[in-house]
Design a protein around this nucleic acid. Structure first.
Length: 227
DNA sequence: GCGACAG
DNA sequence: ATCTTGTCGC
């Protein structure tokens, strides 16, 4: 990569231009190694937003076991927040802390699930897509609400989904991950198709709304007694 | 000009 | 995201 990826304090105008450039580097086909470990990422804020907190969990994928996902590593990393939240520019605020958290891991996952959008973004570079480029790993965005795109009604059966579109493009899916609960917005980030992304999200679902990787990362982040 | 707007 | 208790429902 030779574009100024190291810039996390760009003015909004420059950040927006960089997103458009980086989006062209995303790989939209499956390029994923045999999955042995899956990471889940969740970023939150403390002290009125002054501190950014990144929580990363690594789960072992063992499809033949009764419990196919087992927690094997977890990291919580904090660092001062540099820029405010601006819709569409979330990755510039969250990724610095996420990268430092990943640097602390002893295991390198083959797949990463992120709390936020993948390509379901105005310039096709949500936080999951942006992070995928940095890590050079397949990523999937799982967001709890919509940022952009249009969609029809989703069935109420677990696994039902409808496409999330932008003009003639399908940029993601609205997935009913659990009956009677608001659906989640799934979109590929880097090195995966939407179909493969949905497969993995569904495979990682327990009886909860969020797939295990991001659910456990969320839970880890909210625990008040981590070191 | 008027809304919408991931976390 | 975060500030925050109890409470309704499967």
């Amino acid at each position: 990569m030779d574009a100024p990826l190291h810039e996390w304090n760009l003015a909004p105008k420059e950040a927006i231009a960089l997103q458009a450039l980086l989006a062209k580097r995303l790989e939209t086909v499956d390029r994923i190694e045999p999955v042995q470990h899956i990471a889940g990422v969740d970023i939150g804020f403390e002290a009125g937003g002054e501190i950014t907190r990144a929580a990363v969990v690594v789960l072992k994928w063992q499809p033949e076991a009764m419990q196919p996902l087992a927690l094997v590593e977890q990291v919580v990393h904090r660092k001062p927040t540099r820029i405010p939240y601006i819709p569409g520019l979330l990755s510039f605020r969250e990724i610095p802390a996420a990268l430092e958290a990943f640097a602390k891991l002893t295991i390198t996952p083959q797949l990463v699930m992120v709390d936020g959008q993948g390509i379901a973004h105005p310039r096709r570079l949500g936080v999951a897509a942006h992070l995928g480029l940095w890590l050079n790993l397949p990523t999937i965005g799982i967001a709890k609400s919509r940022l952009t795109g249009l969609h029809g009604k989703v069935g109420n059966t677990r696994g039902d989904w409808v496409p999330l579109t932008s003009g003639n493009d399908v940029i993601g899916a609205v997935l009913r991950s659990r009956a009677n609960v608001k659906p989640v917005f799934v979109s590929p980030g880097h090195r995966l198709t939407l179909e493969t992304s949905l497969d993995w999200v569904v495979r990682c679902l327990g009886r909860t709304k969020l797939p295990e990787p991001t659910r456990l990362a969320d839970r880890l982040a909210s625990r008040r007694d981590q070191k």
